[in-house]
Design a protein around this nucleic acid. Structure first.
Lengths: 215, 215
DNA sequence: CTTTGTGAAATCCTTCACAGCG
DNA sequence: CGCTGTGAAGGATTTCACAAAG
């Protein structure tokens, strides 16, 4: 029952499964049951099975899933077959941290270039890379196949930078600046706002304090 | 119709509204319609109205919502009445970036302390703060009212650090390390994994490339 | 005439529970 | 016997569409 449309909620969990699988492979595990996967990722086994059923029939009844096979399958579905090149734009504190973050490297991506608009930053080195100018964006797309931009620019500059990114021909943006980005439909955008996450956390913490006090 | 249980999906959007409201206030706007809010946050007006209806009846028909009033209401619901103190644990590249990130400060939080287990880092300064030892966690809770921990530790140390945080009496964790954290039910956890976000983005980018090629 | 607030419909997601395969 | 794969049930969320308020 392969190749159906994969639900959004499922896509959002695939990276977790992938991570558990990679760790299991490192630990020498050959197969994992849906229950193993569930325990390691904090979910229920039914959810795991449903999720994986959208990818196709990769399990063996009575046994579980083959670690190597499922790893390949999820990587393919996520489009992680090769190291995908990304450019980080905005080399402030956060941008610098992202540039040297080894998690990207270890999980299917390669930081191919760094870009900043500040003339004082252009030409400086961060890790192995030299900061380039926004004018270089089109050539990153053309000559080096970069289609994913990670934005860590100041909030008031982000829409303008996104426009440049789109004009240069990139097709996906991971945005760390607060606020909504307006881009054409063909561009894929995901936004992660660190303060927003803290605010959501704050709500639930407050809630559990209140219900604890009531008991 | 105030004080019902607020759906998770709605809670996750409240910070966006809050941000739009603050910007509108800065721009001198006195009221905003659900459509204004929707356009500024990339949603539909029906969704905005439904969301806000869970907080109570704060709009005026034919006019919209009073910026100041709604700002106060959402802040209260999210528990942002005062600057909430947070501690950042794990002062690597990411931790350092978070420590100096002014977004936290501007949106209801105060970075009250920094903690790292590395003796070489303890005692060093980052911004206005001096890095402390994990042993200081209980006193941060007791003497300075810190209940929220932001974890930016290496993946293989994170569960142990989370255990310390819980033992020290904190009640909320924002986790930036990959992988699942196991904590008691009374603790509120949110995880943000930067690589996961890129992988999800990669899936949707790939998807839109495929459908574009089909046309 | 504009814009809210909301039932009702439609869609999406999770959980249940069990048939069926290895 | 153990574990997957999945229909069907149950919840949650989004969208629709309109009555009512200013």
């Amino acid at each position: 029952m392969s190749q159906r449309r994969i639900p959004e909620a499922t896509v959002a969990r695939l990276p977790r499964y992938l991570q558990v699988l990679v760790e299991a492979a490192d630990a020498g595990q050959h197969t994992l049951s849906s229950d193993d996967l569930a325990k390691a990722s904090g979910l229920t086994s039914a959810k795991v099975r449903k999720d994986l059923s959208f990818l196709g029939t990769y399990g063996t009844r009575g046994v579980g899933y083959t670690v190597a096979q499922l790893t390949t399958e999820i990587s393919t579905v996520l489009g992680l077959s090769d190291d995908r090149p990304v450019v980080i734009i905005g080399i402030g504190n956060l941008g610098r941290a992202l540039a040297t973050y080894d998690g990207f490297t270890r999980r299917g991506f390669r930081v191919e270039a760094l870009v900043d608009a500040d003339p004082d930053k252009i030409g400086t080195r961060v890790g192995d890379l030299v900061v380039q100018a926004p004018q270089d964006l089109p050539s990153l797309v053309r000559d080096r196949g970069v289609t994913i931009a990670v934005l860590a620019t100041p909030a008031d500059r982000t829409q303008a930078v996104a426009d440049d990114v789109v004009a240069a021909g990139m097709t996906a943006i991971l945005n760390f600046a607060p606020g909504h980005l307006d881009v054409p439909d063909r561009i894929t955008v995901r936004s992660v706002d660190l303060s927003t996450e803290l605010q959501i956390l704050s709500f639930y913490e407050q809630l559990s304090q209140v219900s604890a006090a009531a008991s």
